[in-house]
Design a protein around this nucleic acid. Structure first.
Length: 455
RNA sequence: GCGUCGGUGGUAGAGCGGUCAAAUACUAGGGACUGUAAAUCCCUCGCCUUCGGGCUACGUAGGUUCGAAUCCUACCCGGCGCA
C-alpha cells in the first residue's frame, strides 16, 4: 500500500491524496462502504460500485464466527469471496469489545448524547454483572457468540491471524473502543492495554508476513521445475502475493486531550525492528462535541505521510469536520442502516420516507441526484430521436410504498441513494480541496443540510 | 319457521360480574439509528384534559346487580343444522 498527498487544504490539516492498493486506488478523502459480513447489506457489489464507493470494509469478528476465516481464505480472500474486485479493509473486532461489552443492551453507542461523563459514573458500579457478550481478559477479550452462545477468546494475535486469512488490503490492530462514560482512570488503563495490543498486533502482522514470504519462496520451486501442483493454476502465485496487507494502528484515549495526544505519539512511534504501522485508525465512542477536538489533537501529531481513518463516522457534518482536520478515510453503517430503516439523506436534511406526506409524492428523493434510485444513472435510455433521456427514477411514493409493503427492494433503493449521497459528498469535498473552495462549499452545504426547511 | 353458535376498538382476536378504554398481533401515525447483536428498536393509536382526571364505549333496546363487554329478556344481523 502506498499513500500520496496531492493537495493540502490551507490553514487546516486537510488534504487530498491517493492510496494505492493491490486491488486499485482509493482517492482520499474517501468514504468506505461498510460490509460487515462481506456484504454491503441489501446491495450487490455492482450496486456498491455504482454509488462510487471505492472500498469495502468487513469485520473480523463477524466473519470469524460465520462463515469462518478459513473459508474466506480458501475462497481467495474477502474480495474474491464477496465478488468485490476493489480495495478491501477489515476492522479488527475492537469495536465489538465495546458494542458487545459495556454497550451491550444499553443506550450507548458510537456517538453518545451524554456530554458530561460524570453523570453516568454511578451507574457503572451497579452495572458490573450486567449481561454482556464481551469481557476483557488478561491479554485479550472473551466473546460470547451472539449466534450460538459459544465462547471465543480473541487476542491481538488472533485478530491479526484472522485478518490475514480474510486477506483485506488494509487491516486494523486489535483495540479496545472505550465508552465515553468511563472515568479517566479507566480510560488510562484501557489506553495502555490498547497500546500493548497494538504492539502485539504489529508483531504478529510482521511474523505472518515473514511466514508468507518463506512459504512463497517454497511455492516457487515446483513452478521453477515446471511441475504445477495438481488443482493449481498459473494465477496462484500472484494471488498469494496479493494477500499482503497494510496494518493500521488505532488511536484511543477518549475525550481527554493528554491521552489522545499520548496515544497518537505512541501508536505512531510503535515499531518492531524499524517496521511501523502503515496508517492509523482513530477510534472511540464520542460525545459529538468532543469529536472534532479529539480528531485534531491526534492528527496534529500523526505523521503526515500516512493515511488516517476515522472509524465509524459519519454524518455529513462529521465528514466536513474530519476532512478539515486531516482525516483521509471514513466508514459508517449509517447510509445503509438508515436506508434499510426508511430514512434517506437529502441536501436539506434527512427525511423519513414512510411519512404520510410522501405517500403521493411522485418525485424522486432528490430530483437532481445522480444515483440509480433517483434516476441519474439511467442515461443509457434513448428517446425516439435517439436522444438521451433521463429516467424519472423511483418516486418517493413508490419507495414509501415498498417500505409499507415490507418489500426487499425498499432497503436496496434507499441504501443505494444514501450510499451514493455520502460517498459523493466526500468526493465533492475532495474536489473542493483541489479547487481551493472547501470552506465555501462547507458553509453552503451545511447551511442547507442543517436548516430545518423541507425538500 | 325451529334449533344452535356467534356479533368486542381500523382489522384479526382475547376477555366471560368488579383490578376493562378492554390482552396480543397486524394496520396506521410519529421517532431513533455514527468501526452493523439492526430489513431493527422505541413511543402513540375512543374523545376531552389544567395530565389529577372527566366523558362516551364491547350489535340495538330494556332489565338484574352496589357494580355488566361479561348474567337475563326482546329485537336486529351473521354462520351452521333440521324442516
Amino acid at each position: 500500500m502506498e499513500f500520496k498527498i496531492e493537495k493540502k487544504l490551507k490553514k487546516s490539516l486537510g488534504r487530498a491524496g491517493v492510496i494505492t492498493t493491490l486491488h486499485g486506488e482509493i482517492e482520499t478523502p474517501a468514504f468506505v462502504a461498510v460490509g460487515t459480513k462481506a456484504t454491503v447489506k441489501s446491495l450487490n457489489p455492482e450496486q456498491v460500485k455504482d454509488t462510487g464507493a471505492q472500498a469495502v470494509l468487513g469485520n473480523t469478528y463477524h466473519l470469524y464466527l460465520q462463515p469462518g476465516d478459513a473459508i474466506v481464505r480458501e475462497a481467495g480472500g474477502i474480495g474474491k469471496f464477496m465478488n468485490w474486485s476493489g480495495p478491501t479493509m477489515t476492522d479488527s473486532g475492537g469495536f465489538q469489545v465495546f458494542s458487545l461489552g459495556v454497550a451491550y443492551g444499553k443506550d450507548i453507542s458510537k456517538i453518545t448524547k451524554i456530554t458530561d461523563p460524570s453523570l453516568l459514573i454511578p451507574e457503572r458500579f451497579d452495572d458490573n454483572d450486567a449481561p454482556r457478550l464481551a469481557k476483557i481478559g488478561a491479554d485479550g477479550v472473551s466473546f460470547k457468540s451472539h449466534l450460538d452462545g459459544s465462547i471465543h477468546y480473541i487476542t491481538p494475535e488472533k485478530s491479526i491471524q484472522i485478518q490475514h486469512n480474510l486477506g483485506a488490503d488494509i487491516i486494523f490492530a486489535f483495540d479496545e473502543c472505550t465508552s465515553p462514560v468511563e472515568d479517566l482512570k479507566y480510560q488510562e488503563e484501557a489506553l495502555e492495554r490498547t497500546h500493548r495490543w497494538a504492539e502485539r498486533s504489529l508483531r504478529e502482522h510482521i511474523n505472518l508476513n515473514a511466514d508468507k514470504a518463506s512459504s512463497f519462496i517454497g511455492l516457487l520451486s515446483p513452478l521453477a521445475s515446471g511441475a504445477l501442483p495438481l488443482g493449481s493454476s498459473a494465477c496462484e502465485t500472484p494471488s498469494k502475493r496479493e494477500s499482503s496487507s497494510a496494518l493500521f494502528g488505532i488511536i484511543q484515549g477518549g475525550r481527554d486531550e493528554n491521552l489522545r495526544k499520548k496515544s497518537a505519539k505512541i501508536i505512531s512511534e510503535t515499531n518492531i525492528d524499524g517496521k511501523y504501522f502503515d496508517g492509523f485508525g482513530i477510534g472511540g465512542s464520542f460525545a459529538k462535541e468532543d469529536m472534532s477536538s479529539a480528531v485534531r489533537w491526534v492528527n496534529e501529531i500523526l505523521p503526515e505521510n500516512k493515511p488516517r481513518h476515522l472509524l465509524g463516522i459519519g454524518e455529513p457534518e462529521d465528514l466536513f469536520m474530519g476532512i478539515e482536520n486531516g482525516v483521509d478515510l471514513f466508514d459508517c453503517v449509517l447510509p445503509t442502516r438508515l436506508g434499510r430503516n426508511g430514512t434517506v439523506y437529502t441536501k436539506f436534511g434527512k427525511i423519513i420516507i414512510t411519512n404520510t406526506k410522501f405517500r403521493n409524492d411522485f418525485l424522486p428523493i432528490e430530483e437532481d441526484c445522480e444515483c440509480y434510485t433517483c434516476g441519474g444513472k439511467r442515461s443509457d435510455l434513448k428517446g425516439a430521436q435517439g436522444l438521451t433521456l433521463r429516467s424519472q427514477g423511483y418516486s418517493k411514493a413508490y419507495v414509501a410504498h415498498l417500505f409499507h409493503g415490507k418489500e426487499m427492494l425498499a432497503g436496496t433503493l434507499a441504501s443505494i441513494h444514501n450510499l451514493y449521497f455520502i460517498v459523493n459528498l466526500v468526493k465533492k469535498i475532495r474536489q473542493t480541496i483541489i479547487d481551493n473552495n472547501f470552506f465555501e462549499f462547507k458553509k453552503e452545504f451545511l447551511k442547507n443540510y442543517l436548516s430545518p426547511h423541507q425538500v
